[in-house]
Design a binder for these strands. Structure first.
Lengths: 204, 204
DNA sequence: TGAATTACGGACTGAATGGTCCAGAATGGC
DNA sequence: GCCATTCTGGACCATTCAGTCCGTAATTCA
């Protein structure tokens, strides 16, 4: 699992010196909001400072750069997603229904036309940033593995399970992108319903 | 069909005045290349002038703005795609195999990690630009209709045909995005192979 | 050839960019 | 209370941004 280094915790809480006047996580939430809406390039440092409630020097001391803020926000976003989706796999006894819930959560991404922050970041930046691309592949692999495991629990062999899991994920991500073009909710739902052809088809 | 207005042809070829020293289409091809690689915001006017081989005043006289260049490039890109994919539906007698070819062409998008210019533009700009979003929906609808028609030709009823066509398109677009994260070719192909579950499944 | 029209290069603009730096304030340990 | 340490606001920086404008060159038509 690829992690991202920042100076979010550069000192001991009991150490000397003036303590931080802000919560790094909370500031990151503000940055996430902005990056999510506007994208990376379209977001200026002034916007960022305002939405994070930080002065420029605090921002740089904590995150190193505008890019560092983005990576930290991305880390927080993906961690939150995994954390929110993992318990679903335990609470739902039917593995196929558990998959439905996981995919539904992926597809939803808290409504609106801003789509999914992870996807946005990959599309805008991954081709030029190997580190971000590698991080993204790690996140994708975790989701794939989670779905594939559920598919195997439902009785599917190892072989088609992984491929079908990936395909289901790709389908959902496709619909997330279509939402950004304003495709109506009902049409998106109709596409998402077709995922069952992937998860429930016999091996033929 | 939504179209995009520019001054690409502001005069008659036989009219008075000095004729253009460049081909608007060829210049647009240079712009497309750059936007495709870097995205809209990350591309500066200087980059653009260089890759289009145009001076700033010629660029503005012809396309109105940086944004005008993007829209014209997008129009050309989508037109090219439709033009390249339409004949496939006529030359291949088996409609299901025709769909395979259309989707393959969508998924390929001339290799590399830059993905699909249309998708890139939608993800980066559509949420903030209703005109672009509307144009995008029009393009998507054309592709959907094309695939759905082939599905009906293969004997599928109208009802599931459209939904399955949309879902297949979404799946392919999802894999295009995954390519930007550097997911290996073989994995992408394995996902794309699953499309057949959508196009060839019985109505159940 | 002269008039009308258009294309073009490049100087110019004001604003905004990401990032650095420093002086002073705040804090904890002793 | 004093010192070391750290935080923070804002001044400052060179660069770059998208876009405007004008003088000149090129071309066609009459």
């Amino acid at each position: 699992m690829v992690s991202i280094r920042t100076n979010v915790d550069p000192r001991q809480p009991g150490g000397p010196g003036r303590p931080r006047g802000f919560s790094p996580e909370q500031a990151l939430a503000g940055a996430l909001e902005l990056f999510w809406h506007q994208g990376y390039e379209a977001t200026s440092l002034d916007d960022l400072m305002r939405s994070m409630g930080l002065s420029k020097s605090s921002l740089y001391a904590c995150y190193g750069s505008k890019h560092g803020v983005l990576m930290a926000a991305l880390q927080q976003y993906t961690d939150d997603f995994i954390a929110s989706v993992t318990p679903l796999t335990a609470s739902e006894p039917d593995p196929l229904r558990a998959i439905d819930q996981v995919l539904e959560r992926m597809a939803d991404v808290r409504g609106g036309s801003r789509g999914c922050f992870f996807i946005n970041a990959v599309v805008e930046l991954a081709p030029h940033e190997p580190a971000l691309a590698e991080f993204a592949r790690g996140h994708l692999a975790r989701i794939e593995a989670l779905i594939a495991r559920l598919l195997r629990q439902s009785g599917l062999a190892r072989r088609p399970a992984r491929e079908r899991a990936s395909a289901a994920m790709a389908l959902v991500m496709g619909t997330v992108m279509l939402r950004k073009a304003g495709v109506p909710r009902a049409r998106l739902q109709a596409m998402l319903d077709q995922v069952q052809l992937l998860t429930r088809a016999p091996i033929d």
